[in-house]
Design a protein around this nucleic acid. Structure first.
Length: 372
DNA sequence: GACTCGTGGTG
DNA sequence: TCACCAAGAGT
């Protein structure tokens, strides 16, 4: 303990330690923490592999959506070396439906790197973690704190919201990120000398649990909040107006056509380019997806399929909303003769095994619309 | 710093 | 309904 803090402690002997925000936060967490599949039991060491896997899956994705995927992954690949020995195709198939598919590619690349370059052991520092594929500033800090008890504060959307309310940060996001990062770090409990744990991971997860269950985007339950007493936005009665941010523009509608061609009990599919939207995932052939495109224009774009007779347009359209644009697809179906060969770059797959394909949800919608 | 990148839930 | 949001990263 430094002379300065010793002096402070002596001059303010009546200030109860338990009233500090970090302490209140941890006390609340010990009572109300969520039980999640990737969390170690209280007092037990957490598995860096499970922490890493969950953090990647949880990027921009809800706890509820991640649950089944996490269980599937750890059942099939119980450690990072097992995942590193898998194939990218199998990883993409297991990831299908969870979204943001570049995460799956980076997940696999990271597992290979840890297996081959780090002997199957994750780096235990923020810097070392940050150098791995798919691990950015947030995830590096989260793993360092949760898995290795490094005294650092990861800042995600939850923590941005909690902190911006607690201190009534008027600056808009994303400009406010550095300020929020600094303020968030003040919520870490002090490191004690010797064998005392910093509990940085618990502090971070406490803020996330708080953001998920009490300090919610809309209608926060301030009366249940352990930090209610010194929340500036709460005192102002305006917690919902934080964090400040500029309104985002919605994307322009794009249209396209999709062609569902069957050959008996098989379906014609192809793989999308490795980079870009739905990179590397399976799709049925179709037109480009363009703003202002007419359905009749979209239908022209299938030169490889021109030979097929009896095209039938399904009534209605399939709609899907991506992060930055909504999409409308018209669906055409055709039946190919028994021994029709797949055009270059395409292949026939049994309809019965479509569930095992790396099919993004928008394609599942298209196929269901066509065949259902 | 501004875009790109999925999907499902919410009020 | 629809805008917003969710344990963000890569370019």
């Amino acid at each position: 303990m430094s002379p300065k803090s010793a002096l402070k402690a002596k001059s303010e002997p009546t200030l109860p330690v338990a009233s500090s925000r970090p302490t209140l936060l941890l006390a609340w967490y010990d009572r109300h923490r969520r039980r999640l599949p990737w969390r170690a039991a209280p007092g037990e060491a957490s598995d860096p592999y499970r922490v890493w896997l969950s953090e990647i899956m949880l990027q921009q994705t809800t706890v509820k959506a991640v649950g089944p995927y996490f269980e599937k992954f750890v059942a099939r690949w119980p450690d990072v070396s097992a995942l590193g020995r898998a194939s990218l195709d199998n990883v993409l198939r297991m990831w299908a439906g969870l979204g943001y598919y570049s995460r799956a590619r980076n997940l696999y690349a990271c597992a290979v790197a840890v297996t081959r370059e780090h002997g199957g052991i994750f780096p235990d520092t923020e810097e070392g973690l940050r150098a791995l594929p798919g691990i950015g500033p947030y995830t590096a800090a989260a793993i360092a704190a949760i898995a290795f008890d490094r005294r650092t504060m990861p800042v995600d959307g939850n923590i941005e919201r909690v902190v911006s309310r607690l201190f009534a940060v008027e600056e808009e996001l994303p400009q406010a990120k550095p300020v929020i990062q600094q303020l968030a770090a003040t919520l870490l409990a002090d490191s004690r000398a010797g064998d005392e744990k910093s509990r940085a991971g618990d502090s971070a997860q406490a803020l996330m649990d708080l953001g998920a269950s009490i300090c919610t985007p809309k209608k926060p339950a301030c009366s249940l909040c352990p930090l209610n007493e010194d929340c500036v936005a709460g005192a102002q009665g305006t917690p919902e107006t934080f964090p400040r941010k500029a309104p985002k523009k919605s994307g322009t509608l794009r249209r396209g056509a999709a062609f569902v061609v069957t050959r008996g009990d098989e379906l014609l599919v192809r793989s999308r380019p490795e980079r870009g939207l739905l990179g590397g995932m399976t799709e049925v052939p179709g037109s480009d997806w363009l703003a202002g495109q007419e359905d009749s224009t979209a239908k022209q774009q299938a030169p490889e399929l021109k030979g097929l007779p009896h095209w039938q347009r399904k009534v209605g359209v399939v709609t899907h909303v991506f992060t930055h644009f909504p999409l409308e697809l018209v669906v055409y179906t055709a039946k190919a003769a028994a021994r029709t060969r797949a055009p270059a770059g395409m292949r026939w797959v049994p309809i019965a095994t479509l569930a095992d394909e790396a099919l993004p949800n928008v394609m599942r919608k298209v196929i269901a619309h066509a065949l259902g």
